[in-house]
């Protein structure tokens, strides 16, 4: 509505002090939760946890107790320990594949948007061709044939599939910045292309990249779960959140804990990631921030 636009102009005109917008308590709760997850995954080996692979036929499908916080599965393995160890697979898959996606897609996207011309045209066409493949089906097909499946292979396949998506987002974000007068100004002051990319473009693209990265990690965690559910992720008995949910399928009525805890862990992890990503995007958006 045009009148709210007027308000924005009005406020912008009079905003002089640094905007004291806060990220909010919930944001920090989410950050704390993620940090806890990461720490647990990192230190899983040193933490006083039972071995996630040790079977105990004396305590099969047990409910939560002081001894087994989340209960045990049908082989008597400690679910809490498996959820913690399982988070490793999810987090590694998420971060690893995004590392590949951003490592290749982000620089190409920035370069294409800054240089424009032939380089941009060629890269964009190539990326659209890759995008045209149905990524999920391609991923499933490749993982079905590329055996034995290891986490590394899964990371590579998902990472490569993410490149064109990252490219597109970063290119669009860079385009919006690259047409600003301050980029032209830097050029006429004699700044080199590298300097402009690093000094002028990167800081303005980074917030968008970070929030997209977080949402990307969340998507990959879900994807890994889906693949596991299809039996296409890391081979059992290695726990992953997806694997555990998959295993619970047949005995869901008997032992709902087996599905509940990995699903809850995954859900909270994803919620936190998405919330942080979204909050960061609005927080760092210079223009939107004033609204």
């Amino acid at each position: 509505m045009s009148s709210s636009l007027e308000l924005a102009e009005l406020v912008e005109e009079v905003t002089e002090e640094p905007d004291g917008r806060r990220l909010g308590v919930l944001f920090w709760v989410c950050v704390g939760w993620l940090a806890l997850n990461l720490l647990a995954a990192l230190l899983a080996n040193v933490l006083p946890l039972p071995n996630p692979l040790t079977q105990n036929y004396n305590a099969v499908n047990a409910g939560p107790s002081l001894h087994h916080l989340f209960g045990t599965d049908d082989l008597g393995r400690d679910i809490f320990s498996r959820v913690v160890f399982g988070s490793r697979v999810s987090i590694e898959a998420g971060l690893g594949s995004m590392l590949i996606g951003f490592g290749v897609g982000a620089p190409l996207g920035m370069l294409a948007a800054y240089r424009r011309g032939r380089l941009d045209q060629v890269l964009t066409v190539v990326m659209y061709v890759v995008l045209a493949f149905p990524a999920i089906i391609a991923t499933i097909a490749i993982l079905s044939f590329w055996t034995p499946r290891t986490l590394l292979k899964i990371i590579i396949v998902i990472g490569v599939a993410a490149i064109p998506l990252v490219y597109r987002v970063i290119r669009t974000a860079t385009l919006a910045v690259a047409t600003q007068d301050y980029v032209v100004a830097a050029k006429v002051q004699g700044a080199s292309d590298t300097r402009i990319l690093v000094r002028e473009l990167l800081p303005n693209v980074a917030p968008i990249a970070v929030s997209f990265l977080l949402i990307g990690v969340a998507t990959v965690v879900t994807l890994e779960g889906s693949l596991a559910f299809l039996g296409l992720s890391v081979a059992p008995p290695t726990p992953s959140w997806g694997n555990m949910i998959n295993e619970s399928r047949t005995i869901l009525q008997l032992n709902p804990w087996l599905a509940l805890f990995p699903a809850a862990a995954m859900c909270l992890f994803l919620l936190a990631l998405n919330f942080i990503g979204d909050r960061l995007r609005t927080h760092f958006d210079v223009s939107e921030g004033k609204l």
Partner: peptide, 22 residues
Amino acid sequence: ESGSGKTVLSRTIMGLQPRRGV
């Protein structure tokens, strides 16, 4: 000049207001 309220005034005369916060 900008911030003088001239545009808000004309919108107020028209009865054009954003729904909230005015």
